[in-house]
């Protein structure tokens, strides 16, 4: 495992920890899109079906279980926890996220590495992950006050994606036969979706003012 991949996984892990910290300690999910969280729960469930068929490493298995468990529990907290769910910005979080799923499924049926159930699900999870952040970005833009934890959560997620792109570049040049167009294209699309957010985040950081996205 190279340094970019490890750093990518760690920023992903930190992003989840930041979100859990907000939910568990402050008992708030204000500014967090349930739609995005539901999409992530579906992304990890469909991608990690290979937990039952392929063993890669202990690290791999543990991380998969963490991402599965945390994404499902975050959705549970936002929907059912009696305190947390009250802070959910339901009226602002109106992105019709299920509309993203059908095109991703059709694309996965058409473009996959092999036409098997696991491979189609795997491709579906990559396409869906690429667009899963959209409801969150839309909610950020609508929420006038973005708190620090929410800003850091999205920043860490974006950093995780950018580090994975570096990881692919590194692997392409150091490993033989390492070519994965589906992963690369959907991963690059996903990373580009964060570009706008990154821009405003660093502007606010540089000017030492509170993060606000233009309407």
């Amino acid at each position: 495992m190279n340094i970019f991949r490890l750093a990518g996984d760690m920023t992903h892990l930190f992003s989840v920890l930041v979100l859990l910290l907000k939910i568990h300690t402050i008992k708030s999910c204000a500014g967090i899109s349930l739609k995005t969280q539901e999409l992530y729960a579906i992304v990890f469930t469909t991608r990690y079906l290979d937990l039952f068929t392929t063993y890669i490493s202990l690290y791999n298995t543990i991380m998969k279980l963490i991402f599965l468990g945390s994404s499902i529990s975050i959705v549970w907290y936002m929907r059912h926890h009696k305190v947390v769910r009250r802070s959910y910005d339901k009226d602002q979080d109106t992105f019709r996220h299920y509309l993203l799923m059908l095109p991703c499924l059709l694309l996965a049926l058409l473009i996959n590495e092999k036409f098997t159930f696991l491979e189609v699900m795997w491709a579906f999870s990559l396409y869906l992950e690429a667009v899963a952040i959209l409801p969150q970005l839309v909610l950020l833009q609508r929420t006038r006050n973005i708190d620090n934890l929410t800003g850091q959560y999205v920043l860490l997620l974006g950093a995780y994606r950018a580090l994975y792109v570096l990881n692919w570049i590194y692997r392409y040049f150091t490993e033989e036969n390492y070519v994965h167009w589906i992963t690369w294209v959907s991963g690059i699309v996903q990373t580009l979706l964060y570009a706008d957010f990154f821009y405003y985040y660093f502007q606010s950081w540089k000017n030492n003012v509170k993060l606000q996205l233009p309407a």
């Binding site: 392929t54 490993e175 390492y178 992963t183």
Partner: peptide, 10 residues
């Protein structure tokens, strides 16, 4: 493991 390369990623 050339076929599964990439599937070792999360």
């Amino acid at each position: 493991t050339k076929d599964s390369a990439g599937k070792d990623e999360l």
